[in-house]
Simulated assay, not measured.
Amino acid sequence: GVPGVRLPELKQRRVKAATVEVEERAEEGHVRSDVAVDNPVPAPPFWGTRVIKGIQLKEYASWLDEGALFKGQWGLKGNTIEAEGRPRLRMWLDRLRTGNLLEAAVVHGYFPCVSKNDDLIILDEQGEERTRFTFPRQGHGRRLCLADFFRSEESGQRDVVGLQVVTVGSRIGEETARLFEADAYRDYLELHGLSVQLAEALAEYWHARVRSELGIAGDDPAALEGMFRTEYQGCRYSLGYPACPNLKDRAKITDLLRPERIGVQLSEEYQLHPEQSTDAIVVHHPQASYFNAGGRS
């Protein structure tokens, strides 16, 4: 490899989200969208955080978005998907298993919360503020904001928010870097693309677990394609996307979840390391998916 050459950034699967234009606050008081406020608040199975290690590939491999892998990451078209894509995918998954290159782990948690204006306020056991996230509000249309999906402080009720950080570990990244150094570009690009999608698959798999723990998985679509179109109740929003663009909020998630317990660190630029890791705010509100998918109604 060429000394000092940087590996290209990961292309993460983009959540289909509306572009949010943030406007200056009007003086005449606060705007709230028309999101329902009478949806039931689910009871979480526990409060606080849990660490889960040693998740086997077979548990989350079925959540792999093959379309995003073959077309998006690997750039395959038409017939080459069946002829080349599938055999290469099988080969890679075998290599990952036999080489023990995956170390899938999750830290997730449920936290009591309320909303106030554009803020989601995380509470401690006593109901005092622990930290808060401020989210942008659409400048027009439904004026949606992530905070609207949670019970307001004035309601006198508490809501629940899920947070998760998942990783497929550092070994797959080390193997990818080794291929890059060895000028094995095709292998490098394939494994790099696959590592991104495996982290996504793990996040999607865990998000499904969270929906079932919250008792809102009853409406999950039968087919995986429906899952990738987020036709289910509850959405996960990863930081950096239009609904929650502020990467600095990762520091708050890190404080709450302590993902160093699964080997995930936050860099000074607010990037997760190893890069085959994703974070998410999990919202149970039944209308949250519409906002996620770009304002369908």
Rank of each mutant, 00 (worst) to 15 (best):
R132D: 07
F135A: 13
F135I: 07
P136M: 00
R137M: 11
L144V: 08
L144T: 10
C145W: 03
C145K: 05
L146R: 06
A147G: 13
A147D: 13
F149M: 08
F150E: 10
F150A: 07
S152H: 10
S152G: 15
E153M: 13
S155E: 07
S155C: 07
G156P: 02
Q157F: 06
V161R: 03
G162N: 09
G162S: 15
L163F: 14
L163A: 12
Q164D: 12
V165L: 03
V165C: 02
T167R: 00
V168R: 00
G169A: 01
S170P: 11
S170F: 04
R171Y: 03
R171K: 09
I172N: 00
G173I: 06
E174F: 01
E174L: 03
R178C: 01
R178N: 03
L179C: 01
F180C: 08
E181A: 14
E181T: 12
A182Q: 15
A182H: 07
D183V: 11
A184K: 02
A184Q: 10
A184W: 00
Y185W: 11
Y185V: 13
D187N: 13
D187T: 04
Y188N: 04
Y188Q: 05
L189E: 12
L189T: 11
L189S: 14
E190G: 08
L191W: 02
L194A: 05
L194E: 05
L194K: 03
S195A: 14
V196H: 09
Q197L: 12
L198H: 07
E200G: 02
E200H: 04
A201T: 10
A201D: 13
E204H: 10
Y205R: 08
W206S: 08
V210F: 05
R211D: 05
S212T: 14
I216C: 02
A217M: 04
G218M: 07
D219H: 08
D220M: 08
D220F: 09
P221Y: 11
A222F: 07
A222E: 15
A223N: 12
